[in-house]
Each structure stands twice: as C-alpha cells, then as structure tokens.
Amino acid sequence: MLKLFRKPRPNYDALSKLRPPSLEGMDEILGINMRNALIAKYNPRHAIERARDKVAAKVALEAAGIACTGTVAVIDDHQKLGAFKPSRDMPDAWAIKPARGSQGDGILLAVRREGNTWYKGSGAPLTEEAVMHHIQKVVDGGFSGDSAAEDAALIEPLIIADPALSRIVPEGLPDLRVISLHHNPLMAMVRLPTLESDGKANLHQRAIGAGIDMETGRITRAVVKGTPITHHPDTGVNLIGFEIPGWERVLELAAKCGPAVGLGYCGADIVLDVNDGPLVIEVNAHPGIEIQNICQAGLKVRIAATGEDFR
C-alpha cells in the first residue's frame, strides 16, 4: 500500500478503486489531535501570525503573484483615518473588513450608492458618518478578539460572484475552501449560502457545504448540517455534478497559497469573481476538519498519499 502512496501526483479516483472493500487497517480520518500536530510541525509561528492578519497575508500573496481581491484602502492608524473621506475615496460597492477579525465579525458590505449614501444588501442605508464610525470601531480593535488593541481596516471593492455560481444561490457569495499540504491541494468544498444562513457562507449558520471532486472540479455531495441534499433548498438547482468554473485555476491558486504565506498545512478561501475568476480572499492556518464529513473522505489517507509518514 505504501508504495502506491509514493506517486508524485496521486490519482484519487484510482486510489479509491484500489482500496479493499473492507478497508481493514486503513487510517483515513484526520483527527483534531493529528491536525494540531501537523500545524505544529509545518506552520511556523510567524507564518500563522501573518495568515491571521489579512493585510500582511495579502501582501505576501501578492508578492508571490497570487490573484487576490482588490484593495481600495488600508487604514491602520488614526492619522489615515482622519485623512479618509468615504464620499471621495470609496467606490460604489465595497467591503470593510477588520484585518485581524475572525469568523466574519465586523465585515460591512455595501452593494450600491446614491449620492453620498450607500446601501447594504438588505437595503438598509449607510450614511458617510455610519461608514466612518464603523471604520473607527474596526481601527480601535472592536472586532479583533481580545488580544489586539489596534487593528487595521481593510477596504476592498465588493466581489460579485461568477454568474454560474450566483445562479445556484439565492443571495450572498459562495466561497471555496481548499485544504493543502505544501503545494498539494488535498480536499475541497464549496460553501453555498442559503436564505436560512442569511447569505453567509458559514456552515454553522446552515449554509450548504458541498464536496468537490479534486480531479474534475464537480460537486459530488452536498450537506446541510449533516443532512445530505441534492438540490439547493432555495433555488431548487441540482447541485450534484455541478462543475466549478475555472477549477484548474482554483487548484493552481490553492497550491501556491501555503508556500507564499509560509504555511505548510493551510486552508485557502477562494471566491470566483465575475470578471477576474478565482481570487484568494484568505488563508487559514488552522483549517477545520469538518470538510471530511462534507466530502465523505478522509484527509489522513490523502496526506499519506503525498508522502507524509506521520512521524
């Protein structure tokens, strides 16, 4: 079996066919203990810090020539905050993110503009003062967990999803999560927002997680909170067999992300923009292991296929 795993680019389909039906002796699931050990082994402290800071990660990714989301402005101190004027400096649609925020806290999105007023996706208006207040709160570290006293506000143009993907979701931006070890993408899923998840691509909030076949880029399985489904509950589109547009490019980006930031084991969050195709939005140094339940496949067996001997 081990000889089989030494191939440089493993063919997962062939692997799954070669597996004995009883799966006797096959350690395939990556547990949290083993994940932590991998992170301790391959993710150095400074790289984790860099990945945690969206601005620093973006700088590193762009230096490696990886397509990232655009940047309108980075406001990291009060001097820049004082010089910033939303009505002059902001485009029509944008996203404000705290550089060190977690789990989508403190992200403000505006989808359109009328004069000096922007509107959120829900239709609620945002005045210039409200926008400045939010940026100030971000800079003061209001969304940065409990460690940082100061933070940077990262302002990006709003990403509009590829029509092929936006057709299958009612609202919100679907994103892809690709787990990779060094330059090997191992497993991928796409998170599809639902009305119940309020347009957020967060699996905890009942967004759909859909496993993707690494070879073909097609969705093989879709799950909402542990229940397998075949069609999107809100749009009724069949998800199984849906092919992610630009899959080769997604894999290429995911393979470069970890080395660019300095992480060995990482999870890249990739979105598909209508104009620019796949763009990296974030690199995660502690990617979760729930993806195994979504894809119904073990990460450990795939990591072993890259030559890792877990010692």
């Binding site: 395939e28 699931i29 547990g31 949290i32 203990n33 083993m34 050990a37 542990g226 195994q292 339940n293 119904q296 496949a297 073990g298 877990f310």
Partner: peptide, 18 residues
Amino acid sequence: YRGLRLSEIHRFAPIWLE
C-alpha cells in the same frame, strides 16, 4: 497522543458507515 478522540468517532461515523 495523535489518534482520534472518542468524540470524533461519533463525529465522523457517517463516513465509516457510508
């Protein structure tokens, strides 16, 4: 210890069953 936790057997049981 690097193996699975007891709670993870329950968590990933669907994979084994499948």
